[in-house]
Amino acid sequence: MTAPAALPVTPDDIRAAHARIAHHVRRTPVWTLPSAFGHDGPVSLKLEFLQHAGSFKARGAFNNLLVESVPAAGVAAASGGNHGAAVAYAAHQLGHKATIFVPEISPKAKVDVIRRMGAEVTIGGPRYADALFACGMHIAATGALSVHAYDAEATIAGQGTVALEWEEDAAGGLDTVLVAVGGGGLIAGIAAWFGGRVKVVGVEPENSRALHAALATGEPVDVEVQSVAADSLGARSAGRLVTEIARAAVDHVALVPDEAITDAQRALWRDFRIATEPGGAAALAALLSGAYRPEPGERVGVLLCGANVDLAKLDALA
């Protein structure tokens, strides 16, 4: 698949974002295994769970705050946890006030990270959509800068810097990358960077399939959300910018059951002592479960994207 030139986020945007945020984020390692997880070819793990605040989202957060003028009211964001932690961290580092709206389903471990980063936390309702509405009301009342979790050009370009680094650092190159999808900012940025040169495959829980539904219908649609990974992969609908980029440059979306996600968490913790939250292990779940079946020798990349997990719960899986 070859992406058209006129996408809303381009490789040049991603290069500019990388130059802008490079001194504020970690260049996370790439670990290439000659064969692993039942595949006879190389598997390249991008260890993005080692990023500041525990997920890739620090990239988009910094890019937003460095390209926008931040008012005295500070910044505001709605988040299941990781985006809020990233915005809180970026705001703190750059000297801005942050107010984060989270849904009731956000795990305590993630809410604790947000508070530890210095942000004010407000419970916005039962689900992410409710927190997003409450955040919008706050922005309208105060004039705070909105930092969208996924459907903004600055967010997508920031997340796309993951792919720029991955391509430079992956030993032997990449044929395919597997990327977990919530609202879709991460996969949109990665697909915008690779532009058809590398196959980009999204991975969603079977019962939280916003991008899968958007690609099936041609536009964002609301879906039901019920998954062990709902706090990070639980967007009710994919973004419009995300959908436009994905239609052009994402090969397809693989669906995985919750059991496969927890199996992937268990394997990473048991065999490598890598602690990931459910959403952070979802991309690997596609490989382990057979939801994505690579060709013999295919060079497969797996993005491990989030580490904000309750370690007691993780240890119980093993």
Score class of each variant (00 low, 15 high):
Glu204Ser: 06
Ile156Trp: 12
Gly202Glu: 03
Val253His: 01
Val9Cys: 13
Ala312Glu: 12
Ile123Val: 09
Ala149Trp: 05
Phe194Ser: 09
Val70Leu: 14
Val9Asn: 08
Ser146Ile: 13
Arg299Gly: 04
Ala191Gly: 08
Asp251Glu: 15
Ala77Pro: 00
Gly125Glu: 05
Leu211Met: 14
Gly118Asn: 03
Ala249Gln: 04
Pro71Gly: 10
Leu50Thr: 15
Gly189Thr: 07
Met117Asp: 10
Ala140Asp: 14
Lys46Ala: 10
Leu66Met: 12
Ala90Tyr: 12
Glu165Asn: 13
Tyr150Trp: 04
Ala17His: 02
Gln265Ser: 02
His96Asn: 01
Ile123Asp: 01
Asp40Thr: 01
Gly234Val: 00
Pro11Met: 14
Gln159Val: 09
Gly297Trp: 04
Leu33Thr: 02
Ala77Ser: 09
Ala98Glu: 06
Met1Arg: 14
Val25Tyr: 05
Ala318Gln: 08
Gly54Ile: 04
Val250Asn: 09
Leu233Asp: 00
Leu241Trp: 03
Ala61Lys: 13
Leu132Glu: 14
Ser79Cys: 01
Val200Ala: 02
Gly124Met: 05
Phe272Glu: 03
Val162Gln: 10
Ala281Tyr: 04
Leu47Val: 00
Val181Met: 01
Ala86Phe: 07
Leu174His: 00
Thr10Lys: 08
Pro257Cys: 02
Glu104Thr: 09
Arg299Glu: 07
Met117Thr: 02
Lys108Asn: 07
Gly306Cys: 11
Glu259Gln: 03
Val87Thr: 00
Ala119Ile: 03
Ser289Val: 05
Arg59Ser: 05
Arg115Ile: 03
Leu66Phe: 05
Arg293Cys: 06
Leu268Trp: 03
Ala191Asp: 10
Ala180Cys: 13
Ala283Arg: 11
Thr28Lys: 10
Gly218Phe: 15
Ala154Glu: 11
Gly95Arg: 10
Pro296Asp: 11
Ala17Lys: 04
Ala191Gln: 13
Gly297Thr: 02
Leu284Gly: 05
Phe101Arg: 08
Ala73Glu: 12
Val111Trp: 06
Ala76Gln: 08
Arg26Pro: 14
Arg15Gln: 11
Pro29Trp: 08
Glu277Trp: 03
Gly74Trp: 14
Gly195Cys: 00
Ala78Asn: 11
Arg299Ala: 06
Ser208Asn: 06
Gly84Asp: 01
Ser237Gly: 09
Glu167Val: 15
Gly279Pro: 08
Ala140Lys: 14
Ala131Ser: 13
Val309Gln: 12
Thr10Asp: 06
Lys110Arg: 12
Gly41Gln: 04
Ala307Leu: 14
Asp258His: 06
Ile114Gln: 04
Gly84Asn: 05
Arg240Trp: 12
Gly95Tyr: 06
Pro257Ile: 00
Ile245Arg: 11
Gly124Arg: 10
Val147Met: 00
Arg266Cys: 05
Tyr128Asn: 12
Asp263Tyr: 05
Ala235Pro: 00
Pro220Thr: 11
